[in-house]
Amino acid sequence: MSDHHAPGAAAAQEEHEEHEHPSWKQYKWVALILLVITVVEVWVYYTPFAKSPYFNPFLITMSAVKFGIVVQMYMHLKYDHKLFRALFFGPLLIAMFTVTALLFLFHQLPPLF
């Protein structure tokens, strides 16, 4: 959220209208990647790896990747005004911080010290 948007509003609008959303080709690949990750997640669930201590971190990383891809591509945050990024990631950070803090407080995560 910077100052210079207001004076240059007209210009900003043009710039905004002009940018192209990703095309069908890209969308197709995005869908495929999401699909593959989901298949891997479910497959791993049935393998011995599911008993490993790295299983949960692995799954969380995978779903974070999916989350990021959908937000950046399908919700076109990557191509959109940076204001929208601030409006989404700011609250998301606070929400994730709150979840993490609550899990520590209720001893669902191992103690730090």
């Binding site: 929208f84 998301l92 979840v99």
Partner: peptide, 30 residues
């Protein structure tokens, strides 16, 4: 900003929804 009011509002709404689901998910995990 040259942006549509409705789009700004929906993003603010989605930001708020993050916190809503964060509370629900936290409780499930707790």
């Amino acid at each position: 900003t040259g942006l549509d009011n409705r789009k700004v509002a929906i993003w603010a709404f989605i930001g708020s929804e993050c916190m809503l689901f964060a509370s629900l998910i936290s409780t499930y995990l707790i």
